[in-house]
Design a protein around this nucleic acid. Sequence first.
DNA 1: AAGGTGAGCAACCGCATGTTC
DNA 2: TGAACATGCGGTTGCTCACCT
Length: 351
Amino acid sequence: MGRAPCCDKTNVKKGPWSPEEDAKLKAYIENFGTGNNWIALPQKIGLKRCGKSCRLRWLNYLRPNIKHGGFSEEEDNIICSLYISIGSRWSIIAAQLPGRTDNDIKNYWNTRLKKKLLGKRKQAHMNRLLVGNQDPKGKSDVEDNSYPASLSNSALERLQLHIQLQSLQNTFSFYTNPALWPKLNPLQEKMIQQSLQYLNQNPNSRMQHVQTSSPTLGEEQKGNIFEKSPMNYFKVDDLDNSVYSPIAFNAASSLAEAFPVQKKDTEEQVSTFQAELDDFFNDKGTGFLPQEGQIADFDCVKEMDVTKESMIWWSHELETNSASSSSWDSTSLLYQSQAMYQDCMLGYKSQ
DNA sequence: AAGGTGAGCAACCGCATGTTC
DNA sequence: TGAACATGCGGTTGCTCACCT
């Protein structure tokens, strides 16, 4: 048995509202309020409209202090920032912008802001390609310190781009809101998170994927290692010395399975790995889906005691958390995400 | 001038959640 | 406690208008 319709569909008017209808609705609500019953309201005032339609019309157009169009730069920033952080939660975004409605913001985003933002990304990408092509020495960007393609300093920036692009595509950002992480591939998320954290703490570092025949690492390296991995690890060089990163050592072995590199680190292999890693983070090309055994190899997963059941539970928790707008402070999130957005945009401007 | 196309936007639809009885 | 109903929300649709050919 389906839900009973909220009104008699055959006896209600659809389509644009006439000025007379607007006037009737506005006058009634201003005088008597909605009476907390939108369904009954149209009958009371003799409108052949669905109650939901009346509500929408009032909220989006007739209620006082509604602003239409003319979004300011500041409003653009707020919308973009929040969208990157929380996705298409238009009502929450609208709550940060007095006088704006969720519908208005949604339309504005879909028709203009999204294009504007993606246009900047595209432009930045094109700029990079142009710079690479114009290099007179014909160096690959692996060799060129200004454009290192291995997971170097720019990896941070690139990972951020991945995250933000994925946020745009998936309407979530696990970056600023851990409660939202599981919506994406948790392995990718945790690895990115760990990588970002480490690279943030070690701004001079370069990160490479390294495979070694040595089953263990030297004593001098142990202090920098969370956990040994017999064959694969991420090697992080900063300018002063080489350290071995606490980044996803167990992930490295699983990654190595996904992206086998047979010999020790040559620039070419690092470059290849880099490209493959790109694909990995982009969910394309390799189509890497970890098997159960592989999942257990990720230290991020170990922390979570992952089983199929817990993943399901985790997923459910996410849905619950993300569905409840009162479960987190959207204002603090706004400041947090605005800073991220500003960083991102500054990054584009500097290119 | 007429037809095609795409952008912008108002409104609708269906689902999820909240509330009431 | 659960069914019925009301409300809120986000995705989608379809209309209008401006621009292009």
